[in-house]
């Protein structure tokens, strides 16, 4: 398992994360980084599709509670993550493979660190068993 390099997909809300950063420089540091308009846009289907297409973990970065540009998209996303973790657990996929972080980071300085931390968590879990 030592040569296992986890594949992570990171969705982040453009309103709270990395909007002041040099997008090209930041995306060079983060593989599979998908900035989106509101974390509430991420559906459970898209997370499952990410796993189906080879992701070993999915990280969703949303705005802090009460600070969503669209009222409560971040909270909707958080609830979906908690519900989806139940489905994953019932099917033998570790809930820690989906994580949501609610914070503010306009310069995107924290994103590479968060991705790295989660990558290390996933490395211990091993590849996701989708088939």
């Amino acid at each position: 398992m030592s040569d296992f390099e986890p594949k992570l997909v990171c969705f982040s809300c453009r309103f709270g994360w990395g909007y002041l950063a040099d997008q090209h420089a930041l995306s060079a540091q983060i593989k599979n980084w998908i900035p989106i308009i509101c974390s509430g846009k991420v559906d459970a289907i898209q997370v499952l599709d990410a796993f189906k297409h080879g992701a070993d973990g999915v990280l969703i970065l949303g705005c802090p509670a009460g600070e969503c540009h669209y009222q409560d998209g971040n909270e909707e996303s958080k609830k979906r993550v908690l519900l989806l973790q139940k489905l994953l657990d019932a099917c033998g996929i570790e809930p820690a493979r989906v994580r949501m972080e609610m914070s503010l980071d306009p310069e995107g300085k924290k994103i590479p660190g968060l991705v790295k931390n989660m990558t290390e968590t996933i490395r211990k879990l091993g590849p996701v068993k989708m088939s």
């Binding site: 559906d43 459970a44 289907i45 499952l48 909707e76 609830k79 979906r80 519900l83 989806l84 489905l87």
Partner: peptide, 9 residues
């Protein structure tokens, strides 16, 4: 998975 979105809201 689709019902999750409705349930969450």
């Amino acid at each position: 998975a689709k019902t999750i979105a409705a349930l969450a809201s």
